[in-house]
Nucleic acid binder design. Structure first.
Lengths: 195, 195
DNA sequence: GACGTTAACGGACTGCAGTCCGTTTCGTCA
DNA sequence: TGACGAAACGGACTGCAGTCCGTTAACGTC
């Protein structure tokens, strides 16, 4: 996602990438993701606006880059971690564990994920991370012989969009454990109904 | 939604509301929803920009107003039409019929619905129409004793967001009948898993 | 039908996103 | 180490969303 080192990143480019990420992180932390402008970030990083956009496309792309590390960590736990999140457990259990782990991640990074998903219409469905989660869910659902695993995976992830979860959290005042219980139950239902 | 007549709408206000809606409809038709600016609409309607915003809040609100009539029609068919969409059929059948009917509606008005749902983050969950669909699904799911009908209803509608359906249609090249089949099957699953 | 009140109007104005292009810096090769 | 081509830089510039406030017009009252 960060394409580090692909055909050699120039020294000034690398330097600026780090300056921008550091500036964005600290400004987001201090003022909230929604209240920081791209000009703010450019100024704080001591970099021109063109440089910002050359590297990160838009504010959503910047959010994606900042989320990258945390997402990779969750992805590693899925690929090589202990069951039930990692390999070894029954597919339905792994799916429920994924829902639970993803909701915890979302709860911590809600504003950043929201930005990455809503910067532009359809952004959520175009991130590399989404493709990873989707593929993971599809594979698990296929293992249970669920009907239409492709569709079910997208349905599950649509319900786990930052927009939806934020609404449950902030408008409906649901707690993370409540959402987790309902959504992992629902995930088991999707996995189970095919057998 | 349009609050027509609430505490008397002034004559000039009514006149301008119609001029704006007509202008928006024709410009959207001609250039596509995404390519029309608020200035364009104001100019075409022969009205100041302030007037536009006073009445419709933002571009999404304008889309909501344009969709209003079509949505009401579907809502009437749900409340008073023939089964299985209207009352009389088993809840699971009604839910499947709703999914099917809603997808047809969405297919016709995709760009307008997309605008109404993505104008601002969380817009989809704040429209009056969403509240109607949600309530309808919750009631049907309650009839089948499904677990967590509130959550299941939101999950279903999240999957029927304009963003998601547009992705299935345009990126994944799925046909409306294919999506309808999968999603109404899934809706039956949500309704059925509680028995 | 003049008059005052109040809602509605309109367009200049502000702020932010995103682009464009002349200038600078990097890395390479002679 | 000097010089060249390519890549990256930076900030002025454009366009659109949304606001603000002085002006205008509707409508109830006498």
């Amino acid at each position: 996602m960060l394409d580090v080192g692909v055909v050699h990143e120039r020294a000034d480019a690398a330097r600026n990438r780090l300056k921008v990420l550091a500036a964005a992180e600290s400004l987001f932390e201090e003022h909230g993701v929604a209240n920081v402008t791209m000009d703010d970030i450019a100024a704080e990083a001591g970099v021109g606006k063109g440089t910002l956009y050359r590297r990160f496309v838009d504010k959503g792309g910047l959010a994606v880059a900042l989320l990258d590390e945390l997402e990779r960590e969750l992805q590693q736990r899925i690929l090589r971690g202990a069951p039930p999140l990692g390999p070894g457990a029954p597919a339905a259990d792994r799916l429920a564990a994924f829902v639970s782990a993803y909701l915890r991640f979302l709860d911590r990074q809600l504003d950043l994920v929201l930005m990455s998903e809503t910067a532009t219409p359809g952004a959520r469905l175009r991130t590399g991370a989404h493709e990873f989660w989707r593929q993971h869910c599809v594979l698990l659902l296929q293992e249970t012989d669920a009907p239409a695993p492709d569709i079910s995976a997208e349905v599950l992830l649509a319900a786990l969009s930052a927009e939806q979860v934020r609404h449950w959290l902030r408008e409906d005042q649901l707690s993370v454990p409540k959402i987790t219980k309902a959504m992992s139950g629902l995930a088991r239902g999707l996995a189970g109904s095919g057998r």
